[in-house]
């Protein structure tokens, strides 16, 4: 049985190539962990977008709205629970983060349902209008965030237990990044299991390939799509909450900013492919961190270069989804 492992190899290749350039092993480990953490956060935000695209050929340019909403909701809850955040107890810290993240996930999921109903559904199958309307949705959502939370950025600091770094010899690894990696891997594993081991997952994978045939087999794909859209929005909210805590500031523009990275990731991965999205996210995260260390001036442009290189190699992205 033939599986395409080549794209997966890119990650260790990139890592090893960076090692001699970075020079010190300690800095390399720190950068690698930072890159993985960033990549996994982007993966969490991007996974839903790539699935909804694959399933219904809908690309939501307003996806950033869910990211921003997640960040704001989580920030509000954490600020309300400030005493627990600053307490010197891991459990109290988690008792503040838990509800904050849960609220972010629920609110962005619900917003996703509304977004799908009001903005996406009327323009199924019309790409130009889809782009315009969902971009309009992003504009309005960004303004509404300012209406509700005010125009100023919100500053929040990480809870006591997640500040600082683990020290292993002369290697420093930020605690929060470890958490981000763990959460990202859990989300990836959860998605992979759902897609590969459940009937819903089977339906989604079949629907990504050929939605019409799934309908002809007697399944209501629209309902499936709404579900995936809501879950994707909720995951974007989760990613947004984590991103906000990572940056320690939250602004209404966060959604549009991160959405650019998200787009690059799903283009690299191959539109519609969750596995490709995972690899793409890690590549983007690692590249950003290595280049950020080696040549800070061009760090953010490096993603475009990465995208261009990958598209030169595989014009449809790493894992093109078999279509019709």
């Amino acid at each position: 049985m033939k599986r395409d492992w080549l794209p997966l190899l890119l990650i260790p290749v990139l890592g090893l190539a960076a090692l001699p350039l970075v020079g010190s092993a300690a800095s390399w480990v720190t950068l690698t962990v930072a890159g993985l953490a960033m990549g996994l956060m982007i993966f969490i935000m991007a996974s839903g977008l790539t699935l909804t695209f694959g399933l219904m050929d809908v690309l939501n340019f307003g996806h950033g709205a869910f990211i921003a909403v997640g960040a704001f909701v989580a920030a509000s809850v954490m600020l309300a629970l400030a005493p627990w955040m600053t307490a010197d107890s891991l459990w109290l810290n988690l008792a503040a983060i838990g509800p904050a993240v849960l609220a972010a996930v629920v609110v962005s999921g619900l917003l996703g349902l509304a977004f799908e109903r009001v903005l996406v559904r009327p323009v199924y199958g019309q790409h130009l209008k889809q782009i315009l309307v969902t971009t309009g949705g992003l504009i309005v959502a960004e303004q509404l965030l300012k209406v509700i939370w005010g125009p100023e950025q919100i500053t929040l600091s990480r809870p006591t237990a997640l500040r600082g770094a683990f020290l292993l010899g002369d290697i420093a690894i930020e605690k929060y990044r470890v958490l981000a990696v763990v959460v990202g891997l859990v989300v990836f594993a959860g998605l992979a299991l759902t897609l590969n081991r459940t009937r819903i997952g089977l339906l989604i994978r079949a629907g990504v390939e050929n939605g019409e045939m799934v309908e002809a087999l007697g399944y209501r794909i629209r309902r499936l799509f709404v579900g995936v859209f809501a879950v994707g929005s909720a995951l974007a909210g989760l990613g947004g909450a984590m991103w906000g805590l990572y940056q320690e500031t939250v602004t209404a523009a966060i959604g549009a900013q991160v959405a650019v990275l998200v787009f690059i990731v799903i283009i690299i991965g191959g539109l519609g492919s969750v596995g490709g999205c995972f690899i793409g996210a890690l590549l983007v995260g690692l590249t950003a961190n290595y280049i950020g260390f080696l040549a800070p001036k061009v760090a953010l442009g490096s993603n475009i270069l990465l995208m261009a290189l990958i598209l030169l190699w595989r014009p449809q992205g790493l894992y093109p989804v078999a279509k019709r």
């Binding site: 650019v260 690059i264 539109l271």
Partner: peptide, 10 residues
Amino acid sequence: TIFFAMITLA
């Protein structure tokens, strides 16, 4: 169309 829109944004 969608691809072009995303690439130009990036």
